[in-house]
Amino acid sequence: MRPFTYEVPSSIQEATSRGGADAAFIAGGTTIVDLMKLEVMNPSRLVDVNPLPMLGIQMREDGLRIGALEKMSDVAEHPEVVANYPVISEALLQSASAQIRNMASIGGNLLQRTRCGYFRDVFTPCNKREPGTGCSAIDGENRMHAILGTSSSCIATHPSDLAVALVALDASIYIQNGAEERVMNLDDFYLVPGETPDHENQLRPGELITAVRVPRLLWARRSTYLKIRDRESYEFALTSAALALDLNGDTIRDVRIAVGGVGTKPWNLPEVRQALAGKPLKPETFAAAAKLAVNGANPLRHNGFKVDLVQRTIVRALMNLGGLA
């Protein structure tokens, strides 16, 4: 860990003015402190956003609003979230451990860095950590890595479960910069690595995520998050699926679906949605649609199984949620 200063701003505006390329915001600290100890991130200033007014979980006319400082555990257990968006609650409850969920904020969850072991080891080349040094994972150990949205520069998987659920639900985030506030669709917010894997999203230095908005979607009451992992708790996804299903008898009226564990960003699947809409609720339909999820997949030596597994994950989620299992 390198020496740093610790600052506590008294307003959001002050916080964003204190932000910058040499600074990092700290909320729950469950990612940043780890990465500072590993010297993967070396901000010279830490700006503590915890005292800022970015709390609240409210069901409004236009949907659900979650303050960026809300803890994962509080959101997961909130009655409005549990009732209206089970997929969000389930994604959170299957994330990390109880201790981490009690500390980690929603804003921080969306901005957590990849778990790629090379990114986290400063003694190995990594284009995301140190642009231009190369990608160790492409020819290295890549069982946990992405098969979608990868490039020759980076194959690191986006780690957040919550982000997968939010992308499926077409959520947006509020971004504050000084006195200005902008709203951005979360799917658009995340970037695929391309030639600049260090550039992970559209947040500019000093900008702060203040809240998340999830559009009202009555049929999201029938939604779920299915996470496949090597152990039953406290582990990142091999594959996951966030799914909401709108049924009309035995016909699928509409679907929202995104997958995790396979993409360099939370992987939204509009093609799968299109393929399922209006179709009968049948396993054959599911399998054909799930195939579209892996269009353009680029499997490597150890993660080839994800091509198959993510389709199975989608089908299993559809079977369960559709009541066919």
Binding site: R115, G117, T124, D139, G140, E141, M144, D230, R231, E232, S233, Y234, E235
Partner: peptide, 29 residues
């Protein structure tokens, strides 16, 4: 079901030498 240290053939480095990547059973397992 889950443990196992991954040795990189080319470098001789353990790829999962930490508790996030070397999985041991949790209570739920």
């Amino acid at each position: 079901l889950m443990e196992g240290t991954i040795l990189e053939e080319k470098t001789g480095r353990y790829a999962n030498a930490n508790f996030a990547d070397y999985l041991i059973a949790t209570n739920a397992d």
